[in-house]
Design a protein around this nucleic acid. Sequence first.
DNA 1: GTTAGCACTCAAAGCCCTTGAGTGCTAACC
DNA 2: GGTTAGCACTCAAGGGCTTTGAGTGCTAAC
Lengths: 357, 357
Amino acid sequence: MELSERKKKILKTIIDDYISTAMPVGSKTIAEHMGMSISSATIRNEMNELESMGYLDQPHTSAGRIPSDKAFRMYVDSLMEMAQLTPPEMNFACDYYDERMVQTESVLRAAASAISEATDYVSVVMAPRLNRVTVRHIQLVPITSTSALVVLVTDVGIVRDTPVSFNSPITADQLDDVSKNLNKIFAGRVLSADDLDIHREIMQELQGQREIFTQVTEILRDHLLSADSSFTVGGTARLLNHPEYDDVDKARSMLSLLDSNRQISSVINSDDGMEFKITIGSENQNEQFKDCSVVTATYKVGDRSEGTIGVIGPVRMKYDKVIQVLSYMKDSLAEVLGSSGKRIDNNVKENDHEQEG
Amino acid sequence: MELSERKKKILKTIIDDYISTAMPVGSKTIAEHMGMSISSATIRNEMNELESMGYLDQPHTSAGRIPSDKAFRMYVDSLMEMAQLTPPEMNFACDYYDERMVQTESVLRAAASAISEATDYVSVVMAPRLNRVTVRHIQLVPITSTSALVVLVTDVGIVRDTPVSFNSPITADQLDDVSKNLNKIFAGRVLSADDLDIHREIMQELQGQREIFTQVTEILRDHLLSADSSFTVGGTARLLNHPEYDDVDKARSMLSLLDSNRQISSVINSDDGMEFKITIGSENQNEQFKDCSVVTATYKVGDRSEGTIGVIGPVRMKYDKVIQVLSYMKDSLAEVLGSSGKRIDNNVKENDHEQEG
DNA sequence: GTTAGCACTCAAAGCCCTTGAGTGCTAACC
DNA sequence: GGTTAGCACTCAAGGGCTTTGAGTGCTAAC
């Protein structure tokens, strides 16, 4: 059933008020906020209907009304007004990046801090999934005589380190040889599970390096198949800035929930590549987050690799602000993580030709 | 003035009780805990004297006594009994390390989690300072045509990545050459500020690579001079497990304090290489931590590189348990971070000879 | 359909009293 | 002289009671 315009306006006023005060909203307050064009008695009648329709809850008889999850759903779907961030506000992220951040992990941490700072909610930033990206460079760096660091650089500028260890000692020169061979095979190739199988045949031609090759292939496979890729959680302390967590027990259980990676990834993982995804309270599959809302956005690095950023907060969330910030941050992340990749696009192609010819 | 044995025993009983209950301790409770060998009235007399000597505080007339910072100082200095961790307890750290942790940062994060889990306090783990360690390997890995990753591996097995960017484009082959030259010069050398100046002369002989050499030298310098090295804070959520932070305002201010790296390093940085350092409440220079105690321990990686681990908690802290855990963790860290280095000691020497001959 | 008026509800806050843990003091005891 | 029992005193915490006031639903009039 469609709501009348007036009901919508009242509902929006209630939600706006509740979002900013966290207190049940009474009919008189609404009348004032709506410019006294209608009396509080009329609003009471309307609220009564809104309550029976499931949009409002009443904590107790003599309290005002609280918007239900259903009301928030309608709010974000159609009532909410979106504004753009003003230019000064858009600088919030700049303070967090510094010139040394080539490694993905530091960028992600910086992004998490920036999002938390800007929204005052807990932020989650997932690393970009290495899907259909091109390997630009692979280098094995010796750590000990039987272990090395596999440094993987993609065309979108993402750097990943992974250690490997070997059964028998290997010298630095040997590793260098292996690196060269690895580059011949993988550089310029698209990372996908199928490709790795094809290259496995090539490996068999190589004498004595098969063990290492297999291991490196496994690492690449891990990286590109890691659906539950690593993520960074920021600003957990900000939980206490919201009256929902004035109760220490609630705060404690929420904080320890946020300490558990498994719990968080169950809430964040959105396979569908929607630009924004808003999950409100009871809509969360995970029972423990039923008092929370989760807003996530998908960012792209170089048109192929995708990652997720998001915010976890109370249902009474400043959805408009959060979406603005996430919207700005996903572009910002795409730029910071992807810029290096774009800059060398030509260069990569040249290398491809050299290696393929 | 020296305390009588009985006063010491009473004081110890009070502190032990207060540590476990967080409640003011009354004379009757103490009499029970001491086996009723003396009456509560006698204990009251003794407590009265202890209070006038500054070892006890009384929140209000009709409450029990609370040990002062001075009392805790005496407690950790002479009253406290130290027990060893039982073998099952010593396994707590093992669950946190996994075989892939060659990179220092992941090890430190794991250590922070382990310490927090074992002590139920907030933990701080500082990266080992690269002081007087030997460079085992330097590798430049191309990221873009004008930037690269400097991967530094030391003889104690510590790996550090730092990005550099160049003014003019450089090919992968050129970077490989530079890496080889860097290794010729630095591999096997001790990292110290003086040495870097000496090597600067050598660099001048090298044509065309001077810019890169200068930058890498600067990075090495940064790493070895970084007194305020990076650190990891873990288990901040555990703050709320202690009644000291039942007040949300206190919890909030403490949590945001722990979010500030600058504040934490002001409390943790201990230049003196003491094995353990305990700072109790008002002994903290930083006014904001005057209600906290900080226990730090110094761990060594390969007999040269030193790092710091520590715990931040309420003054009413289980100092014995904390010291046990830190003691175990510093050995554990030394082992995990240093094992790879030891394993290849011979190998390193061989390389040295090759490169020096 | 809207509004004013009124009776009703109920959490929150203030107040008072009781309770009980704990103290200090004193006088008796060993 | 140190130790102890006894007793008066203190005061935070908690229970119960009342007041307050924000907010509602209903009804009758506009």
